[in-house]
Amino acid sequence: GPGLTDLFKTEKAAVKKMAKAIMADPSKADDVYQKWADKGYTLTQLSDFLKSKTRGKYDRVYNGYMTYR
């Protein structure tokens, strides 16, 4: 089956995709945050998933999740 690194890459891609969806349409934020909360994502995990070469690119999404939880 898929190894943990593959799983991480898949999760990371999914999280980034959802983060971009929030940035494009902030009204989606609560739905996405709820999904992440259901998956039990911690802020540390989210921070790892949303690492970007562009500093602060996903800060709004991260901060939103922090206040959501």
Score class of each variant (00 low, 15 high):
residue 35 K to T: 12
residue 66 M to H: 08
residue 7 L to Y: 14
residue 12 K to D: 03
residue 42 T to I: 03
residue 3 G to V: 13
residue 38 D to V: 09
residue 38 D to Y: 08
residue 20 K to T: 05
residue 60 R to Q: 14
residue 29 A to W: 02
residue 29 A to G: 06
residue 54 T to F: 08
residue 12 K to F: 04
residue 51 K to V: 09
residue 58 Y to M: 03
residue 51 K to T: 11
residue 61 V to A: 04
residue 14 A to G: 05
residue 9 K to D: 11
residue 9 K to M: 06
residue 18 M to Q: 14
residue 17 K to L: 11
residue 23 M to F: 04
residue 17 K to T: 07
residue 60 R to W: 13
residue 61 V to L: 03
residue 8 F to P: 07
residue 69 R to P: 02
residue 18 M to I: 03
residue 60 R to P: 09
residue 16 K to P: 01
residue 51 K to M: 10
residue 8 F to V: 09
residue 61 V to E: 01
residue 48 D to V: 15
residue 12 K to S: 13
residue 52 S to M: 05
residue 26 P to T: 05
residue 39 K to D: 05
residue 7 L to G: 12
residue 33 Y to M: 01
residue 12 K to R: 13
residue 46 L to F: 02
residue 68 Y to H: 06
residue 1 G to P: 12
residue 6 D to C: 15
residue 65 Y to I: 01
residue 63 N to L: 14
residue 35 K to P: 00
residue 30 D to M: 11
residue 66 M to E: 11
residue 26 P to W: 14
residue 19 A to Q: 01
residue 50 L to V: 02
residue 20 K to G: 06
residue 32 V to S: 03
residue 13 A to S: 08
residue 24 A to V: 10
residue 35 K to E: 14
residue 67 T to K: 15
residue 26 P to I: 06
residue 8 F to K: 09
residue 20 K to L: 10
residue 34 Q to A: 12
residue 67 T to M: 15
residue 14 A to R: 13
residue 34 Q to T: 06
residue 57 K to Q: 08
residue 49 F to M: 09
residue 11 E to L: 05
residue 44 T to H: 12
residue 36 W to I: 01
residue 25 D to Y: 04
residue 64 G to K: 02
residue 8 F to G: 08
residue 7 L to I: 12
residue 11 E to K: 04
residue 4 L to P: 12
residue 45 Q to F: 04
residue 50 L to R: 01
residue 61 V to G: 01
residue 51 K to A: 09
residue 44 T to L: 12
residue 48 D to I: 15
residue 2 P to G: 13
residue 9 K to A: 10
residue 18 M to L: 07
residue 18 M to C: 10
residue 1 G to R: 08
residue 5 T to Y: 06
residue 8 F to N: 07
residue 3 G to M: 11
residue 1 G to M: 10
residue 58 Y to P: 01
residue 35 K to W: 08
residue 65 Y to N: 00
residue 15 V to G: 00
residue 32 V to G: 03
residue 22 I to R: 00
residue 42 T to D: 05
residue 55 R to S: 12
residue 1 G to H: 12
residue 9 K to T: 05
residue 14 A to H: 10
residue 68 Y to C: 03
residue 18 M to W: 07
residue 4 L to W: 11
residue 54 T to A: 07
residue 51 K to G: 13
residue 13 A to T: 07
residue 33 Y to K: 01
residue 52 S to Q: 05
residue 4 L to K: 12
residue 69 R to M: 15
residue 13 A to M: 10
residue 21 A to P: 01
residue 64 G to S: 03
residue 19 A to P: 01
residue 4 L to F: 12
residue 42 T to V: 02
residue 30 D to Y: 12
residue 65 Y to C: 01
residue 20 K to M: 10
residue 44 T to A: 14
residue 15 V to C: 05
residue 61 V to S: 01
residue 42 T to S: 10
residue 62 Y to G: 02
residue 50 L to S: 00
residue 68 Y to E: 01
residue 19 A to D: 00
residue 61 V to I: 12
residue 57 K to Y: 10
residue 41 Y to H: 03
residue 37 A to K: 08
residue 49 F to L: 09
residue 17 K to Y: 08
residue 14 A to K: 13
residue 31 D to Y: 11
residue 10 T to Q: 14
residue 40 G to C: 06
residue 21 A to I: 13
residue 48 D to E: 15
residue 9 K to G: 07
residue 37 A to H: 15
residue 13 A to I: 09
residue 27 S to M: 07
residue 23 M to Q: 05
residue 49 F to A: 05
residue 15 V to D: 00
residue 69 R to S: 07
residue 43 L to G: 07
residue 52 S to L: 04
residue 46 L to V: 08
residue 28 K to F: 07
residue 48 D to P: 03
residue 31 D to T: 11
residue 5 T to I: 12
residue 1 G to Y: 11
residue 34 Q to P: 04
residue 40 G to S: 04
residue 62 Y to F: 15
residue 26 P to Q: 07
